[in-house]
């Protein structure tokens, strides 16, 4: 068990190192903080809303565009260079390798979110916000980010091309985000199926409202589990088809 976590840690560190060696972290993190800071300032100073509600909404949309940039290289880069194949000859399970990579991407997300904590300084300085919804909102945006990254992990596992991985991820994320629109067609309404319940935007909205519904937490965790498993399967399958 100890050796499992040591191996996981070694993979995680290598991936994280790669983020900061390549320009990706230096592009994604400042853009995330600048743009979300821009919207936050607008909401705080112009709309005079002393809450993080708008900021969390904006971050969710922003991450829709930035998460694919974080995940695109995770497996696609090593699929392309062939180093993935070498990793898969080592006495380390596929799932450990994928998990280590995923956790590195999650770490980049956490760094971004940690950076956004500076927004709280003017918030508490100029207003008297309720900390509850802020905590719920951070949990929500973190889980949402993890879902995005899991989708990205999966698409990256299936591709050798980072651009394809990024664009593919964005596509799936947009569908997941806007799935609730399908409810307006009322096609499956008769069956009692609600696309709203299947849409990440709906569940994220719950957290932003300041509540932490178990269903939404489970929904997010299930999506993470689903796409992680799909990634593992994609990698595993390649052993038999190539």
């Amino acid at each position: 068990m100890a050796s499992y976590f040591r191996t996981l840690g070694v993979i995680w560190r290598k991936e994280l190192y790669n983020y900061f060696w390549s320009p990706i972290a230096y592009i994604v993190l400042p853009i995330f903080l600048l743009v979300s800071g821009y919207f936050f300032s607008f909401s705080l100073f112009y709309l005079q809303v002393a809450a993080m509600t708008n900021a969390f909404h904006n971050m969710a949309i922003l991450l829709l565009l930035l998460a694919p940039a974080i995940t695109m290289r995770l497996l696609a880069e090593e699929n392309q260079s062939g180093s993935m194949e070498l990793l898969f000859t080592l006495p380390v399970s596929y799932s450990t390798i994928i998990l280590g990579k995923y956790l590195a991407a999650v770490t980049v997300l956490l760094i971004g979110l940690a950076g956004s904590l500076v927004f709280l300084i003017p918030l508490f300085a100029y207003g008297d916000p309720d900390p509850g919804p802020i905590l719920a909102g951070y949990l929500g945006i973190f889980l949402l980010g993890c879902v995005y990254l899991a989708v990205g992990l999966f698409v990256s596992s299936a591709s050798k091309n980072q651009i394809v991985a990024a664009v593919g991820t964005t596509g799936i994320l947009i569908i997941l985000w806007f799935a609730s629109y399908l409810d307006n067609f009322n096609v499956l309404g008769e069956l009692g199926i609600s696309f709203r319940q299947l849409s990440v935007s709906h569940h994220h909205g719950e957290f932003v409202r300041g509540i932490v519904p178990l269903a939404s937490v489970m929904y997010m965790l299930s999506l993470i589990g689903l796409f992680y498993t799909l990634s593992w399967f994609t990698v595993y399958r390649r052993r038999y088809i190539a």
């Binding site: 040591r6 290598k14 260079s81 062939g82 993935m84 194949e85 006495p91 380390v92």
Partner: peptide
């Protein structure tokens, strides 16, 4: 298939752990 961003010794240490 190596990692261009790693120094030789770091890479070997990584692979040693992985092995």
């Amino acid at each position: 298939p190596l990692y261009p961003f790693m120094k030789v010794r770091d890479y070997l240490r990584f692979m040693a752990s992985m092995r």
